[in-house]
């Protein structure tokens, strides 16, 4: 802004500016509106976030008033008797996401480690591109693949194999149908790996070489350096990356809707079909004719929004602090 005042005060003194510059100056009056335009576009990012929250509360008012806090702790979902609550969907959302993360985090760390430390540069860029592409595949394609390709294999081979070893645990009871919480978790793992592994790779490369070299200097193996130096140095960043992955898994819709089974029930077994908040919304939203039904579905959306908002905010602030303390630039 200081430049603007300088240029206007100069204007009277310079006598013969080139045509281009004269043309440019003639529009100097647009400077302020342009600034405001950019500012309001930027502010509308924040505005949208707030508007989403308000709209969800507004449209779920009926259900909020009818069920109150009961909505969060009961597990009935009965459109015929007008009884709705969030627990079954919430349970499926959280369980499938936790399975996804439990599978994705160790694999992602290993991939990040391979890409940053082990692979020769051409291989690292090849695998890096592959992981990136895995993240670019739309969620509906994961859904198609999960339902028609992965689910039959889960039903015929993987789930019976797990049952033959761990069949006595309550987690793996029931007929191996191929669809259910476990398969949803596996698909979510594939979808989260690109995110977590790219952050892990970045964090591995951000560790100062001197620290790693001093590890090698005292005769540590690569794994020992990773465990003792790199992981410890980058731990907080990796925690942030996992939280980001969790937020993404919680809100994932199409892929989960295809394979989770869509049944309103809570069962301990991971092989049983269930549902998640997003799959309930995807399946039932357009069928909901009753105001209370629709309002309950929107309240489910509100629950998901608040959940992801909280995790996103925490992880973003956390990662910011980590970046500042590690001096990295992103």
């Amino acid at each position: 802004m200081t430049f603007d005042t300088a240029s206007t005060s100069m204007r009277s003194k310079v006598r013969t500016p080139s045509r281009a510059i004269r043309a440019g100056r003639a529009f100097a009056c647009f400077d302020r509106p342009f600034h405001w335009l950019a500012l309001s576009a930027a502010m509308s990012l924040l505005g949208l976030l707030i508007a989403i929250g308000i709209a969800l509360v507004w449209r779920s008012e009926l259900s909020l008033r009818t069920f109150g806090l009961r909505f969060l702790v009961q597990s009935v979902w009965d459109p015929v008797r007008h009884q709705f609550s969030a627990l079954t969907s919430l349970y499926g959302t959280i369980v499938s996401s936790v399975i996804g993360l439990a599978l994705a985090v160790p694999l992602s760390l290993a991939i990040g480690f391979y890409l940053a430390e082990l692979a020769p540069p051409p291989l690292a860029s090849f695998f890096g591109t592959a992981v990136e592409l895995l993240g670019a595949i739309p969620s509906i394609i994961y859904g198609m693949w999960g339902l028609f390709v992965l689910a039959p294999i889960m039903a015929d081979q993987i789930q019976p194999a797990i049952q033959s070893v761990l069949g006595s645990l309550p987690l793996f009871q029931g007929p191996p149908m191929g669809i259910g919480l476990f398969t949803a978790g596996v698909i979510l793992a594939l979808m989260v790996i690109p995110f977590v592994s790219s952050v892990a790779r970045e964090i591995f490369t951000m560790v100062p070489a001197v620290m790693k070299e001093s590890g090698y200097g005292i005769g540590a193996t690569k794994w020992e350096v990773v465990r003792g130096v790199t992981l410890r140095y980058g731990l907080s960043g990796i925690v942030g990356a996992c939280l980001l992955g969790l937020a993404r898994a919680l809100g994932e819709t199409m892929a989960v809707t295809f394979v989770i089974g869509n049944r309103h029930a809570i069962s301990l077994s991971l092989f049983e079909p269930g549902n998640s908040i997003s799959s309930t919304l995807a399946n039932e939203f357009t069928e909901a004719s009753e105001p209370l039904y629709l309002s309950s579905l929107i309240e489910l959306g509100l629950v998901l929004f608040v959940l992801t908002l909280a995790i996103q905010t925490i992880s973003q602030l956390w990662l910011r602090r980590v970046e500042r303390s590690m001096g990295g630039v992103r």
Binding site: G251, T253, S278, L304
Partner: peptide
């Protein structure tokens, strides 16, 4: 600007189905 960056990051993380519900509502 920092706050707006944070808001944009969070908005990117809002599940796309929630955006659908929002547009449905408004």
């Amino acid at each position: 600007a920092d706050l707006i960056r944070l808001g944009a990051n969070i908005l990117m993380g809002v599940p796309s189905i929630i955006v659908g519900v929002f547009v449905y509502a408004v």
